[in-house]
Design a protein around this nucleic acid. Sequence first.
DNA 1: CTGTATCCTCATCGATACTG
DNA 2: CAGTATCGATGAGGATACAG
Lengths: 112, 112
Amino acid sequence: MPTKKITKNTERCALQEILGVIGGKWSMSIIYALSHRTMRFSEIERMIPGINTRMLVKELKNMENNGIVTREVFATVPPTVEYTLTAKGKKLNPIIDELYKWGEEYVDKSMS
Amino acid sequence: MPTKKITKNTERCALQEILGVIGGKWSMSIIYALSHRTMRFSEIERMIPGINTRMLVKELKNMENNGIVTREVFATVPPTVEYTLTAKGKKLNPIIDELYKWGEEYVDKSMS
DNA sequence: CTGTATCCTCATCGATACTG
DNA sequence: CAGTATCGATGAGGATACAG
């Protein structure tokens, strides 16, 4: 991952760093899905309509690298993999929730 | 408000709607820049290192369309255009702030 | 079930030059 | 000063097939 060193433009660059971590198209949806409980890969996949395997794997991997989720593999047949939000990830929940409320109030007012 | 039963779909789709509005690379930076005061186009441009004219115009236009900023033109020579956060836009400030704090705590811990 | 491996499209973003 | 107008690059994201 491009962890480029920030030299000067602290605040605004930090925002872009953050977006690099959770600004992906599906990141927030995944965090939201995991907010209540640990889930298996296929559970997450089913909970997020529209996502495809590749993107889910990619986002989960990215989030794991950024310490937002943990990945636990069970040597069952067929294989079981569970994903859980870390403390770091959990802290995003209220924020995403606020964002969601903001959108509820404004963005999709006219939608059904 | 009707207690509309929120299906899994709508929630996640709403998140994507929201990201479509403020998920752009520069949106949050612009909101952050405007959080304290009204600014002219060139002021914003100078406040956000790395952005270029085209992107700033584009984002501002998008944000204007979404009711996040207002655009006011003064018929001076040379022309003056001022951008101001709307109430809707201002409500994003605490959220962005939280996001920033989250990043401050985690994202760039090991940097600079 | 949980991923990889490809291939491809398209929007996003950047650089630059120009205009009212 | 505050934008437009182009052109090009890049990579995020999607579809599908396949593997362990």
